[in-house]
Design a binder for these strands. Sequence first.
DNA 1: GATGAATGAGCGTTCATTCAT
DNA 2: AATGAATGAACGCTCATTCAT
Lengths: 192, 192, 192, 192
Amino acid sequence: MIQSEKRQKILHATLAMIAEHGFHGAPIADIADRAGVGAGTIYRYFATKDILITELFRQLHEKIYMRLLEGYDAKKPHRERFLHLNTSLLHYFVTNPLEFRFIEQYLSSPYSILFWQNLKQGKGEAGLFLYHRLFEEAVAQKIMKDLSLNIFFALAFGPLLVMARENVLGFIVLDEVLITGTIKACWDAIKR
Amino acid sequence: MIQSEKRQKILHATLAMIAEHGFHGAPIADIADRAGVGAGTIYRYFATKDILITELFRQLHEKIYMRLLEGYDAKKPHRERFLHLNTSLLHYFVTNPLEFRFIEQYLSSPYSILFWQNLKQGKGEAGLFLYHRLFEEAVAQKIMKDLSLNIFFALAFGPLLVMARENVLGFIVLDEVLITGTIKACWDAIKR
Amino acid sequence: MIQSEKRQKILHATLAMIAEHGFHGAPIADIADRAGVGAGTIYRYFATKDILITELFRQLHEKIYMRLLEGYDAKKPHRERFLHLNTSLLHYFVTNPLEFRFIEQYLSSPYSILFWQNLKQGKGEAGLFLYHRLFEEAVAQKIMKDLSLNIFFALAFGPLLVMARENVLGFIVLDEVLITGTIKACWDAIKR
Amino acid sequence: MIQSEKRQKILHATLAMIAEHGFHGAPIADIADRAGVGAGTIYRYFATKDILITELFRQLHEKIYMRLLEGYDAKKPHRERFLHLNTSLLHYFVTNPLEFRFIEQYLSSPYSILFWQNLKQGKGEAGLFLYHRLFEEAVAQKIMKDLSLNIFFALAFGPLLVMARENVLGFIVLDEVLITGTIKACWDAIKR
DNA sequence: GATGAATGAGCGTTCATTCAT
DNA sequence: AATGAATGAACGCTCATTCAT
């Protein structure tokens, strides 16, 4: 097994363990077992458990950002761009429930405070950047309500996160129709 | 100090510790110190740490439900009722940031699985019940879109949770005007 | 309830708890519950738990000694006296299994070291004293083997303790005939 | 140090601590110190303290059984076989006082209930098996008294246990002559 | 005198991290 | 480079003892 493969196995085992059992139920020994490596080996790739977790989040975040960019066309109408982004994101969470469970826990915990701060300071390329531009333009063109960016984020992401959670818990089954329908409703909340 | 006071002190210390430092950073010894009691004392009121945490959530949940009922009038128009509920809730989170931080972490963690299941099975009186009725009526009267309950919950709560988080992290300052404005936008998402 | 009654209740609760659950499984709180008194009350009668246990043993020891004296006639033949003492003792253990369980654990634990030392130094009146005299006389009169006192104790008490244990564990049912028969066999071991 | 050595060091430290200070006075931390290992290390070899103790007893029991078999010849006369077994056992206890102290406490405590039950049900090879056969034959051949097995055990082991205790407490000094003499007296108790 | 709530030292156990192999 | 046995600090929890009522 080459190095980067091993690194990925460790990251994935961490993802699965935390997604399924929470931060509480994910000791390094179990992660190592699940990754098929020795416990000590993990420390050759990640200096501490916290860094492993932070790095896992960073990687997922980047991966999702890349996914959102796929097929995104900054020249299309704002509504269409918005639908594209949110539909992609929700679709991603629905097809990757473990990742969603991890991200959800990460973002709700004190772990994420640094992430949020960096994000708001514009450090690190992020999906938010796309929304940022989209919202600013649309507000200027009076297509969207005259609300602040943070409010738009709330109106745009909030419903999506709750739906992804309901999906992961088995309370709803999200198909393409339902996803599109709901994202359209989100648009209603922000459009003028 | 009378017994129920001490119990409340313990619950509040738990709330504050977990809100500020996460489940990780809240050992019983620290909670006890913060509550001004001995570590052993906590176990006179709560059999295990898990039960303490679960009970804390249950109590907050009940308290918030009561708060939502205040001034709620089932005879008023649906939009007004919706605005009342969501405004009250967001207002509550804004004025009780520690409680929000705790609730957010609790609901994102495996702790909450039981809670969600009970909720969906209608066990325990909950704020959701009010929304339930409200949504069903409004859908029947073609005031709201023809979406499922779970989708409404997502559209109604999602933005609110994100805003409360942004508020607690200091990214936005929510005043009454902003709260009302955003909740009205939420209504746009669900109304026909 | 008068004082001495309460004291007895505490002693009996201690006896029962330790007999049934061992030294491990007998916290003061449980003993207090079983005795029907407050936990603090126990400390008005016994300075520490160790003293309570030691005093319980002392009391049982004295009680049993008194029992052995009943009907004991130093003028009867040695064999008869021996049969009387051992039969009484085994009978006592059979009819008081909790006391036997407690005594057995006490004597096997480091608690008892002091007791043994005192006994050997002749401190405290004890059943052993009767045996002491009996053995010395019988050896002098060539009725018993020419063995040391300690060996006689072993030959006289050893079988009795094992039988009492087998009885308490339900492996044998000891009736009068069996008791007498076995004690007679013990006599065979020590007589010339 | 190889693994099995470390395991043995832990078992021996447990033996010594419990023999000297009782179950009470043998916390894992002290056992670990005495074994020269970290406290956590013990849990790599034994899942719980109870399992450590139970396993220690099991191992001692097996070792002693093996010792009794040494030089045991089922074709020799019953008396000789009996003297061999009991002399070996008492000799073992005299030369291994710590083991005797531990075994004594173990067998008197609630720990041992399971052991007794298994023994009586014939589970696990045990020294008792040898006695079993010996007694049955000797009774059939009218060499021994017509008593039940349990009674024989009492008459055979009882004195031996008391003597071992007196030896360990320093009240008697058992040499070969004394051991043999006493065991012969035990035979008198069971022979016809 | 009697209580039982309160205490905190001390327990058994876990687990992030280290390091000899 | 990789391992996993070893570690011990830190955890959740218990319980003998105290003391305000």
